Amino acid sequence: TYYTVKSGDTANKIAAQYGVSVANLRSWNGISGDLIFVGQKLIVKKG
């Protein structure tokens, strides 16, 4: 599943929404920190 980042989103918020850990969200998308951008497409695997 892909999720498009919206204004006000955070890695924590997206992870919680899908029931996954922030560490997994980072791993699936090659993100090292919490910096995400509006319009960015993230791979999300439901927990």
Score class of each variant (00 low, 15 high):
26 R>D: 04
31 I>M: 12
13 K>A: 12
5 V>W: 05
39 G>A: 03
29 N>P: 01
41 K>E: 10
37 F>M: 09
32 S>T: 14
7 S>R: 09
26 R>A: 11
33 G>S: 09
9 D>L: 00
22 V>P: 07
45 K>R: 13
19 G>W: 05
2 Y>G: 04
8 G>V: 03
36 I>H: 02
29 N>C: 03
44 V>P: 01
31 I>S: 05
44 V>N: 01
29 N>Q: 02
11 A>F: 15
3 Y>G: 02
43 I>W: 09
4 T>D: 06
6 K>I: 10
3 Y>E: 02
11 A>R: 01
8 G>P: 02
27 S>M: 13
19 G>P: 01
8 G>C: 05
14 I>N: 00
44 V>F: 05
9 D>Q: 01
21 S>D: 10
32 S>M: 13
1 T>A: 11
7 S>P: 15
11 A>L: 15
25 L>C: 03
43 I>A: 06
35 L>P: 08
38 V>P: 13
16 A>H: 11
42 L>F: 02
12 N>V: 15
16 A>V: 10
13 K>C: 14
18 Y>V: 08
13 K>P: 00
24 N>I: 11
31 I>F: 14
4 T>I: 15
37 F>W: 11
10 T>G: 02
45 K>C: 12
46 K>N: 12
35 L>I: 13
36 I>L: 14
35 L>S: 12
11 A>D: 06
40 Q>N: 05
30 G>C: 13
16 A>M: 11
20 V>M: 09
40 Q>E: 06
35 L>D: 15
31 I>H: 04
23 A>F: 06
42 L>V: 06
21 S>I: 05
34 D>Q: 08
23 A>S: 10
10 T>D: 08
8 G>T: 06
43 I>K: 07
20 V>K: 00
39 G>Q: 02
37 F>G: 06
41 K>Y: 07
28 W>D: 04
17 Q>N: 09
7 S>G: 09
14 I>Q: 00
24 N>K: 10
8 G>S: 06
24 N>D: 15
3 Y>K: 00
42 L>P: 01
41 K>L: 13
13 K>I: 10
31 I>L: 15
13 K>G: 14
12 N>Y: 14
37 F>H: 10
30 G>H: 11
24 N>Y: 07
23 A>K: 09
20 V>W: 02
39 G>T: 03
8 G>N: 06
15 A>I: 03
24 N>M: 13
34 D>E: 10
6 K>C: 10
38 V>F: 05
36 I>R: 00
16 A>I: 12
9 D>M: 01
6 K>S: 08
43 I>P: 01
38 V>A: 09
8 G>L: 04
18 Y>D: 01
12 N>A: 15
5 V>M: 02
21 S>L: 07
16 A>N: 11
44 V>K: 00
27 S>F: 12
35 L>F: 13
33 G>N: 11
6 K>Y: 04
41 K>N: 09
46 K>G: 13
12 N>S: 15
20 V>F: 03
10 T>P: 01
6 K>T: 08
34 D>M: 08
25 L>G: 01
24 N>T: 12
43 I>F: 08
35 L>E: 15
39 G>E: 03
27 S>N: 11
18 Y>I: 07
2 Y>I: 11
15 A>Q: 01
47 G>M: 12
3 Y>H: 14
30 G>L: 07
19 G>K: 08
33 G>R: 06
